[in-house]
C-alpha cells in the first residue's frame, strides 16, 4: 500500500510478539491501537475482519517476516474495545474501529441532518450512505451495520429514532 507512513514500531521485530511484561505489554497495546486507528483512518476502513487478519499487511510485515498471531490479534481487539477504540461486530469475528469516536460520528450525522433539513422526516439508511446528496459527507460509503451503530448512539441521546426494520431513521432537533 502506498502513502501510509508506518510508525517505527512496525519495523521493530518484537512488536509482533505479545510482551510478557505487563507494563511493556500495555505500551505495546497502545501502540497497536494507534497504528490500527491510523491505518484504518488512512484507508477509510471501519470494519476490520479479524478472520483474515494475517492476509492484511497491517498485521503481517512481510519484509520483516513477522506477523501478529491470531490470538494476539484478538488480544489487541479486546484491548481496543475495552478502551473505547473499537466495538465487537458479528460476535467476535470483526471489529468496528473507532478512529473517530462514537459520539463524534453521531454528531456528524446529526449535524448533517439539521443542515440538510431532514429533521422530523424519515430517510433511509441506504440513502444516507449511498445517496447522491451525501457523496461529499464523511460518512458516505459507510457499511450499513456501522451506520446503525452510530444511529443507535443518537437514539440513546434522544436525537434520532430508528424506524421500521431498522431501515429508516428520523432525526430530531
Amino acid at each position: 500500500m502506498s502513502g501510509f507512513t508506518w510508525p517505527w514500531e512496525y519495523s521493530f521485530p518484537p512488536f509482533f510478539t505479545v510482551q510478557p511484561n505487563s507494563t511493556t505489554r500495555a505500551k505495546q497495546m497502545d501502540s497497536w491501537t494507534s497504528l490500527i486507528c491510523a491505518y484504518c483512518q488512512f484507508h477509510k476502513i471501519t470494519i476490520l475482519n479479524l478472520g483474515d487478519a494475517e492476509a492484511s499487511d497491517l498485521f503481517n510485515n512481510k519484509t520483516l517476516k513477522r506477523k501478529l498471531s491470531s490470538d494476539a490479534v484478538l488480544e489487541v481487539a479486546q484491548y481496543m474495545t475495552d478502551n473505547g477504540k473499537a466495538q465487537w461486530l458479528d460476535g467476535q469475528n470483526s471489529i468496528l474501529v473507532l478512529w473517530r469516536s462514537l459520539e463524534e460520528w453521531a454528531k456528524l450525522l446529526h449535524d448533517f441532518a439539521i443542515e440538510a433539513g431532514l429533521t422530523n422526516s424519515v430517510c433511509t439508511l441506504f440513502e444516507l450512505v449511498q445517496g447522491d446528496d451525501t457523496t461529499k459527507e464523511e460518512f458516505y460509503g459507510l457499511d450499513i451495520r456501522v451506520l446503525k451503530v452510530f444511529l443507535k448512539c443518537l437514539e440513546e441521546q434522544g436525537r434520532a429514532e430508528l424506524i421500521g426494520d431498522d431501515e429508516g431513521v428520523k432525526f430530531f432537533v
Partner: peptide, 20 residues
C-alpha cells in the same frame, strides 16, 4: 524484561531481545 527495558521477539529460530 522485568525492568521493561527490553522487548521480546519470539522469532522462529531463537528468541531475541530488543532495546527500543
Amino acid at each position: 524484561v522485568a525492568d521493561n527495558l527490553i522487548w521480546v521477539d519470539l522469532a522462529p529460530e531463537e528468541a531475541t531481545y530488543w532495546f527500543p
